[in-house]
Design a protein around this nucleic acid. Structure first.
Length: 200
DNA sequence: GACCAGATTGTCT
DNA sequence: GACAATCTGGTCA
């Protein structure tokens, strides 16, 4: 089942938590790729200076302030993109960063997209999607998808029972990674013990 | 294994 | 003009 408007209207930290175990699916011209979400971070509107939405609407963050359930893709460090799901109603700028996936379908396609490093067959699949910029490349997500509706193909997220019975797991909650402000807020969620989580 | 520098450019002040 | 929700490849041990 594709996650719908109702799901994305939950509170942002709840969405971050509930996205664990769900599937991110991209049906591209190259083929279908699917990853199970194993790590997320919530970015809030107010009281969270680490969030891009904290300072209000800009050209870059405007999609965060629109309808929930859209793709917020941003460019960073001069060469990478990260993928977020927008949350919160119109006028409130919040989102959930997808930090890591477990590759499920289209692994060869993902290896091809990741390029040079994976030409070597010895490079393990564990490095394919265990970080926010890595999964964007592996899934074939591009900046053109900024603002895309995530409740329908080609890019969408399904519930954890979409393919089979949901896997059982414990959720861990820690502080977020790679930020310099509001470092103490415990808004990072991941599947405890999952080897595709970015940092242990 | 731990630590560190370099890459490279959009965005905001 | 400073900085960034990162990754990779190097050095040193």
């Amino acid at each position: 089942m594709i996650l719908d408007k109702e799901f994305y209207s939950l509170e942002t930290t709840q969405i971050a938590k509930k996205l664990l175990g769900c599937y991110l699916i991209h049906e591209s011209g190259d083929g279908v790729s699917v990853g199970r979400i194993v790590e997320t971070e919530a970015y809030l509107g107010t009281n969270d200076p680490a969030s891009h939405g904290f300072k209000g609407v800009t050209n870059r963050t405007k999609v965060m302030f629109g309808e929930p359930g859209k793709a917020y893709i941003y460019f960073t460090y001069g060469m990478y993109f990260c993928f977020n799901v927008t949350t919160a109603p119109d006028g409130v700028g919040e989102a959930v960063l997808i930090r890591a996936l477990e590759p499920i379908v289209g692994i060869e396609l993902m290896r091809k997209r990741r390029g040079k490093l994976f030409v070597n067959a010895d490079t393990p699949n564990i490095m394919l999607t265990n970080g926010p910029a890595k999964l964007v490349i592996a899934m074939g997500i591009t900046k053109d998808m900024y603002g895309t509706d995530l409740t329908q193909p080609p890019l969408y997220i399904t519930s954890s029972d979409h393919f089979d019975k949901p896997i059982a797991f414990d959720t861990a909650q820690t502080t977020r990674v790679g930020i310099s402000k509001a470092v103490e807020l415990p808004l990072r969620f991941f599947i405890k013990g999952n080897e595709f989580v970015s940092k242990h």
